[in-house]
């Protein structure tokens, strides 16, 4: 300790920083490039999209792939005409089904989640565990009875069949997410309302729920995305443009051998935009919810 080693002041290469930034750039490219490719392709003419070597940016940008969904050109009509025709309908169907699912879910889950966040009751742990367990049930396990059930009631190819099945998927997750959000709402608010002689429903409606609104929105977004992205049940339960959702029609593009890649890409982009916009808009809450409930939406 007595001798002080004199180290010449020298510039130290900030290895940590370099590694960090290299990794960040590599990951950014990995995450964004595949998506960029279908977005770019959706604005290309078919000739450019299939050229070798590929054009990485649309050299002659065009909207014809998107406009084709409204007025298909003859060429588009010829290859994959049915899927093209069905795309606008399927977008409408998906929107209706996903929105209804989100609302129905919220209505059912709010009560249950409230009970877990505010009341001490016997069996609460078991019940919470049961909800989680139902979430673990693979969709494929209930799809056959679901199909037979819907057939019996004449509900095949209707919105209702889809909304009901997606509600059951999303319900346990929604309860788990809401329970955590509700706990962060201060109890004093309700107690103050009670002192003011507000009834329970009144308290809920005009005091508790407005404060819990961000959590409710996040849960609704989760349910919406679950319904929007779901494919297997939609494949079983729908067959015409009356109820086919966008994943089913998008899959039709892919399984049809002479589909134009550009049109398929455009349909894919249309299918991604709503969930992606929601994810970015509600990023913070969704991340919080995902981590808290450890659930996949």
């Amino acid at each position: 300790m007595s001798t002080v080693v004199k180290v010449p002041l020298r510039y130290r290469i900030p290895w940590k920083k370099i590694v960090l930034y290299v990794l960040a750039v590599v990951f950014a490219l990995y995450l964004v490039l595949p998506f960029y490719w279908i977005v770019a392709m959706s604005f290309m003419h078919e000739v450019d999209a299939i050229s070798v070597p590929p054009h990485w940016i649309p050299v002659h940008p065009t909207l014809e792939n998107y406009l084709g969904f409204i007025h298909p050109s003859e060429a588009q009509q010829l290859v994959g005409g049915r899927a093209i025709d069905e795309t606008p309908y399927s977008l409408r169907n998906s929107l209706i089904v996903a929105t209804s699912t989100a609302i129905l879910n919220l209505a059912l889950a709010t009560f249950a989640a409230y009970s877990f966040s505010r009341l001490k009751f016997r069996g609460s742990q078991v019940l919470l565990m049961l909800y989680l367990l139902t979430r673990m049930v693979p969709g494929i396990a209930i799809i056959i009875p679901f199909y037979l059930l819907m057939r019996t009631f004449g509900l095949l190819d209707t919105y209702l069949a889809l909304i009901l099945s997606y509600t059951t998927f999303a319900l346990p997750i929604t309860i788990w997410i809401l329970k955590d959000f509700f706990r962060s709402v201060p109890r004093e608010l309700e107690e103050a309302a009670r002192v003011d002689r507000c009834g329970w429903f009144r308290t809920m409606w005009s005091v508790f729920l407005p404060v819990a609104a961000p959590g409710l929105v996040a849960a609704a977004v989760f349910a919406f995305m679950t319904a929007w992205n779901e494919f297997m049940f939609a494949l079983f339960l729908t067959s015409t443009r009356a109820a086919k959702t966008i994943p089913v029609v998008a899959a039709n593009f892919a399984t049809d051998f002479n589909t134009q890649f550009t049109v398929m890409a455009a349909a894919g982009v249309l299918a991604v935009v709503p969930p992606l916009a929601l994810a970015l808009l509600f990023q913070r809450k969704l991340v919080q919810g995902m981590a808290a409930g450890s659930v996949k939406g």
Binding site: L31, P34, F35, N229, P247, A254, L278, L286
Partner: peptide, 15 residues
Amino acid sequence: ALLPWAMPGVVNGLM
């Protein structure tokens, strides 16, 4: 990082 999460599995497949 949220981009792939928001993407429906079907679109992921065709992409």
